[in-house]
Design a protein around this nucleic acid. Structure first.
Lengths: 210, 210
DNA sequence: GTCTATAATTCGATAGAC
DNA sequence: GTCTATCGAATTATAGAC
């Protein structure tokens, strides 16, 4: 493929990325992608054959990016308490920055579970899992030296992810159906990471009495 | 409307319920509802005018049931620790029993956010909120008599919901992409309620040292 | 490689007979 | 109240000219 062709293909892919993220698979029209890319609709088929193929390309890209983002950038040089604190704050910030991506994935998971699961599986296979494994290792170490109580690392990670992710994806609806003031909403959102860390740390730290 | 008409209408609604739950709004075909109900497709329009109208009827019913289920049946005669324990176990059981309903709502929230939000708002308005309010009251009381540490009841409830709901809706994908044995999967699923209660209680209970 | 025009299909909705 | 037949809109996909 020559330079011009590659350029066009990338324009289409980038447009598809933004349109699929906004509307989901079912809500996306090939015409809208073409308009967004500034090319003719027929070209989408010339380069990608079908809507399904473009969707799959976008989905792979999105899933890969989100998995990377959620486990990367964890500073392991800190002490254990700070690692957990750092993990929670980093994760919640990443989620805030990529809300649209999370909501897209949540939507697609239910509409196209098999497609999404397959992409997740494939991505995880080629992924560098070391970051997550190192954290689990650190959890086990902290248990052994009695800094925290005995807990299954897998369950602890799941609990942290639940507290981080569920709130973020549900908060638009939550604040829409409750009658909090804008100010209270902001306070709750901004304090969420501290609240989660506090909740988690109080649960796992070992006290002197024990 | 005579007896026969009412009966047909109910057959359609019941079929619509099962088909929408399985496929979501976008994935549902009027023909499939008609087949499921054993009537002609034209009759759906005779009784409900449009697909949107049937969907709305189903959505209202589903949302109402799920909100009721999640807050009802909390035994308030117990002591505080047991109320929290009971709340978590009841909720997780309800979620397990109604997994399809939860997954349907999660899917619809992203595909039709405005429609779903509106139905939630409306349902909450006519809902008996006393159960949830009483729990928040009990939380405040427990703080005052120093049974648990100081915590915002709203945040505590959100945290419990996160730990209960997120795991349940994500577990099919989680177990699909990891390589746990069937046995380990069962153990984790069956112990989830105990794990959550333990995690929450360890986080909030006040010790003697403090 | 890119465009115009159109085929092909799917699906919600309706008209009209019984 | 129920069915058959069909319309019309929306949308993916392709054929063919440039």
């Amino acid at each position: 493929m020559d330079g011009k062709g590659r350029e066009t293909k990338e324009k289409i892919l980038s447009a598809a990325f933004s349109v699929f993220l906004k509307n989901g698979k079912a809500g996306t029209r090939m015409q809208e992608i073409a308009d967004e890319a500034g090319v003719n609709k027929a070209l989408l088929h010339y380069y990608f054959r079908s809507k399904d193929k473009i969707y799959l390309a976008v989905l792979k890209d999105v899933v890969q990016k989100i998995i990377m983002k959620i486990v990367e950038n964890i500073d392991l040089s800190l002490d254990f308490q700070q690692i957990i604190n750092n993990l929670i704050h980093t994760q919640i910030n990443k989620i805030k920055e990529n809300k649209q991506v999370f909501q897209f994935i949540m939507g697609e998971v239910w509409m196209n579970p098999d497609e999404v699961k397959a992409v997740f599986k494939e991505t995880i296979k080629i992924l560098d899992r070391s970051a997550l494994l190192v954290i689990m290792e650190r959890i086990n170490e902290a248990v052994l030296r009695k800094e925290i109580r005995k807990i299954d690392p897998f369950q602890l990670i799941i609990n942290i992810f639940s507290l981080d992710i569920f709130f973020a994806i549900i908060s638009p609806i939550l604040f829409d159906i409750t009658d909090f003031s804008e100010k209270k909403r902001m306070v709750i959102e901004n304090n969420r990471a501290d609240e989660v860390f506090n909740f988690v740390w109080e649960s796992i730290r070992l006290r002197n009495e024990e």
